[in-house]
């Protein structure tokens, strides 16, 4: 075990940390919006909307993320319609292709988590809210959504960790995030274990912090479960 090499690799791997965090944060943010819209459309009962959203979640949950990334990065650039459109400045960049693929992927998984959570909101609570004279929108905003979000947090925590790990695939389309840098350094130094351990610890730390944040959100949203002082 070459300790100095491990120590020396740390600054270069740390320098790639912001890119990893950026990929994860943007993918999660866009993915959340997408998941919200998808879950609502899926529950709307409209036949076309249900068919479209089911197809979306089926395709993105049933194929590997690597295929999705390559399809977006290499595949879309082949279509003239896209090359000529206003989207091209965005889609010609690997960064946005990676974010788009990650967001579409997490959006599909998260929409199913959210849908499941919305369906478990107790019917009595909805009836009670209706009896209080709440409109549909207010009922959704004040009762259904807060209860559902509280319900989905543990599963969403897993999804966040999966996204942190999934961001490593951006390295296959030239993004130099932590895994990309680690791969390059392994190829240069052949110190496979040393670099794997440092990069691995960085990922474990990110995931540890993410888990703590989700746990904190769970704690904040369940005041009634805390022991009263």
């Amino acid at each position: 075990m070459n300790w100095t090499l491990m120590w020396d690799s740390l600054p270069r791997l740390l320098a790639a940390l912001p890119l990893t965090l950026q990929l994860v944060a943007l993918a999660l943010a866009f993915g959340a919006v997408l998941a919200f819209a998808t879950a609502l459309l899926r529950l709307s009962g409209n036949r076309v909307a249900v068919a479209l959203t089911s197809a979306y979640t089926f395709v993105f949950r049933g194929t590997p993320l690597l295929v999705q990334i390559f399809l977006i990065y290499y595949g879309l650039s082949q279509i003239d319609l896209i090359r000529d459109s206003f989207l091209w400045p965005v889609l010609s960049q690997p960064m946005w292709c990676a974010i788009l693929a990650l967001a579409l992927n997490t959006g599909a998984y998260t929409s199913e988590i959210l849908r499941g959570a919305i369906e478990t909101v107790p019917q009595e609570q909805v009836e009670a809210a209706r009896a209080c004279g709440m409109s549909r929108v207010r009922l959704f905003r004040r009762i259904v959504l807060p209860v559902a979000i509280r319900q989905m947090l543990p599963a969403y925590g897993n999804e966040v960790i999966l996204m942190v790990k999934a961001s490593s695939l951006a390295s296959t389309i030239t993004m130099m995030e932590i895994t990309g840098v680690a791969r390059r350094m392994i190829a240069q130094t052949f110190a496979v274990f040393e670099i794997f351990i440092v990069a691995g610890i960085l990922y474990l730390l990110i995931n540890f912090v993410a888990t703590r944040l989700i746990k904190h959100a769970e704690w904040r949203t369940t005041p009634y479960l805390r022991a009263r002082a």
């Binding site: 052949f190 274990f193 990922y203």
Partner: peptide
């Protein structure tokens, strides 16, 4: 379980592929 589930799959593959 903690290490393997918390580290990207690609990194594990590189570890075995190169090491």
């Amino acid at each position: 379980t903690t290490a393997v589930r918390g580290v990207p799959e690609l990194l594990v593959i590189y570890l075995l592929f190169f090491g």
